[in-house]
């Protein structure tokens, strides 16, 4: 009698223990399903609706999408994000790799230098933007300083030059993220198997050749991670542009994220804003989903 009741107790406890983990995970999953996937569906629907200032669920097909694609500003935004991303990814990767290789030569103050290269990553983009806006200010910043120091022909007005302003944003963004990429490469370099390198050294191969032929090819996974992370950061970039140029001069530095914000909150064109957001999501998903899939499916169980 007591035996069977304790057995029943056990099985109730076992059932409880089996459900408990799922119960603990459930709130997170529910939040994510609602706030991520539910919201994605809602925004996607809005991009096919007649919404302007308020949501309007009348289906209008691809009307908002053709308005988006017909928009001159959107064209500028796409062009800018393409230029920005390309320069940002290439510069950060090359500079990050260079710094990592230089730092990996048994440098005395490695810890200190690493901290210096990495600290911009801890700053808010708004702080970075504020600092660089001041630094590159044509009236009182770098240009004036160079004049004071005697280089009177020095001219640097990119910040207020519509053709060049996007490059100032690239400079600030590269300054901020290079240390992070360097840290990734440094971790990669420290993980490389030394056997092949020793063999090459014994053969008398010059250092640059060892790097080019043996070490850098082994860093392929780090290159992949760095490019994915940087591309993802680039497409999302919003804060830095708002703080540095406000999308200007005119709309010379408009990017999809600032375009979306202004159509959503100041121009009351919810439908177009939703379409631009869906487009951004599609680009990032095309980049991230295969990456996550390969990482999760990988040899680690």
């Amino acid at each position: 009698m007591s035996h069977s009741s304790s057995k029943r107790e056990m099985s109730a406890r076992a059932r409880w223990q089996a459900w408990l983990p799922k119960l603990v995970l459930a709130p997170s999953l529910a939040l994510v399903l609602f706030f991520v996937y539910g919201f994605i569906l809602w925004t996607s629907y809005i991009s096919f609706s007649a919404s302007d200032m308020l949501p309007n669920y009348t289906w209008v097909g691809t009307h908002q999408w053709s308005r988006l694609w017909g928009s001159w500003t959107w064209g500028i935004a796409l062009h800018n994000i393409w230029v920005f991303s390309l320069l940002y990814i290439v510069s950060c990767t090359l500079l990050g790799l260079l710094l990592a290789i230089l730092l990996d030569q048994r440098i005395r103050a490695e810890g200190l230098l690493r901290t210096i290269y990495l600290y911009p990553m801890a700053l808010s983009f708004i702080v970075t933007g504020t600092a660089w806006q001041w630094f590159l200010n044509p009236g009182l910043g770098l240009e004036k300083t160079m004049h004071e120091l005697g280089w009177t022909s020095f001219s640097f007005d990119w910040l207020i030059n519509a053709d060049m302003a996007i490059y100032t944003v690239v400079i600030a963004a590269v300054w901020q993220a290079t240390g992070f990429v360097m840290a990734m490469f440094l971790a990669g370099l420290r993980g490389i198997d030394g056997e092949m390198i020793k063999a090459a050294q014994i053969d008398g191969a010059p250092v640059w050749k060892i790097y080019l032929r043996i070490i850098i090819p082994q860093l392929r996974p780090v290159f992949l991670s760095a490019v994915v992370v940087l591309a993802h950061l680039a497409i999302k970039s919003f804060d830095l542009i708002v703080a540095m140029t406000g999308g200007g001069p005119g709309n010379a530095t408009t990017v999809p994220a600032t375009f979306m914000y202004s159509y959503a909150f100041s121009r009351n064109e919810m439908g177009i804003a939703a379409a631009s957001a869906v487009f951004m999501l599609a680009v990032i998903a095309a980049l991230i989903v295969p990456y996550l899939y390969s990482e999760l499916r990988g040899p680690r169980s």
Binding site: L25, S28, L29, V32, L33, F35, V36, Y37, G38, F39, I40, W42, T43, I46, P55, H232, I235, K236, P256, A257, M260, Y261, A264, M270, A273, A274, S276, A277, V278, M280, L281, I284, A285, I288, V289, L292, Y293, L296
Partner: peptide, 21 residues
């Protein structure tokens, strides 16, 4: 799958959730 669903949430461009949020 559950982990993948949660993880993807940190990579979405947040523009996609601004309006409904």
């Amino acid at each position: 799958i559950v982990f993948g669903l949660i993880l993807f949430g940190c990579f979405i461009p947040f523009q996609i959730i601004l309006l409904p949020m």
